[in-house]
């Protein structure tokens, strides 16, 4: 699914957080949204699934305008993974993963889908009956990923999903994401502040600074030909 943002601007009261952002997220590619803290990258991600309705501009999914009168329906097409995961503490792993099955009428083979997903992220079926507080941070993030993928959505939105993980776990999950993308390609948007993570995962990179897109291009072009001092410093900070 292709996602287009056209002349998006967003203001909170007097503060402008996004200014005239126009972008296209390519079908079945991974795009990294990178920038410093406060650059507006999370806000931009949240305009994609309608958690934020921008003050100006349009969001188009596969050419169709985002339908703000029924945002839940649009969001079911988009998996959503965040830092801190946000697993529901009162539900088991299996219930967390399959939560979306309770949001719509169609029934599928739940147990099989759940154990398939767990297997894809390297967790044994014995995890199904555990509660979130019994899991390590890495295991929680893997379950969070399964939950986002439950409905097999064409889009996956990830908001600094690996930020709180230790380096080894982060490395493992990044590889699982890449393997997933190879097996079942999706349009993914990954918010990060780490250029190395962008380099490892992304096809395209979009760099934001103070709510403005300062460079948007293929990974190679951005890394080799930074057009803005901030892009350069992000690269230097990651690779020096």
């Amino acid at each position: 699914m292709q996602i287009q943002l056209q002349r998006i601007s967003h203001r909170y009261a007097e503060r402008t957080v996004l200014t005239n952002v126009s972008l296209t997220f390519a079908h079945q590619k991974i795009t990294a949204l990178i920038g410093r803290s406060g650059s507006g990258k999370s806000t931009l991600l949240r305009t994609v699934n309608g958690l934020i309705q921008p003050t100006e501009g349009e969001v188009r999914l596969q050419g169709q305008l985002f339908n703000y009168s029924d945002p839940s329906r649009e969001r079911l097409k988009m998996g959503y993974v965040v830092q801190g995961v946000g697993l529901f503490p009162h539900l088991t792993v299996s219930q967390n993963i399959a939560i979306a099955s309770r949001l719509q009428k169609q029934k599928s083979d739940l147990p099989k889908r759940v154990s398939d997903l767990l297997a894809q992220v390297g967790l044994s079926p014995s995890y199904q009956s555990k509660f979130p507080h019994e899991l390590s941070g890495g295991e929680q993030q893997r379950v969070g990923l399964c939950r986002a993928l439950f409905l097999d959505p064409p889009v996956l939105l990830m908001d600094e999903p690996f930020g709180a993980l230790d380096p080894i776990t982060r490395y493992e999950i990044q590889h699982e994401v890449l393997r997933l993308q190879k097996d079942q390609p999706r349009t993914m948007i990954l918010v990060t502040h780490d250029m190395r993570e962008a380099q490892k995962l992304a096809d395209d990179i979009v760099v934001l600074e103070k709510g403005v897109v300062i460079q948007a291009d293929s990974k190679e072009n951005v890394l080799q030909r930074p057009t803005h001092p901030v892009v350069k410093s992000l690269i230097d900070a990651a690779f020096s």
């Binding site: 699934n49 958690l51 945002p71 839940s72 329906r73 649009e74 969001r75 079911l76 988009m78 959503y80 965040v82 801190g84 946000g86 529901f88 503490p89 009162h90 939560i99 979306a100 309770r102 949001l103 939950r147 986002a148 939105l157």
Partner: peptide, 27 residues
């Protein structure tokens, strides 16, 4: 109820009533 959980519930595509029933009331 933890705002992170409310945010995730919205992001997953829950309506206001679904969020209430599945997340907010139980918690």
């Amino acid at each position: 109820v933890d705002p992170l959980l409310k945010n995730v519930s919205d992001g997953l595509g829950m309506t206001r009533l679904q969020k209430l029933r599945l997340v907010e009331l139980p918690l």
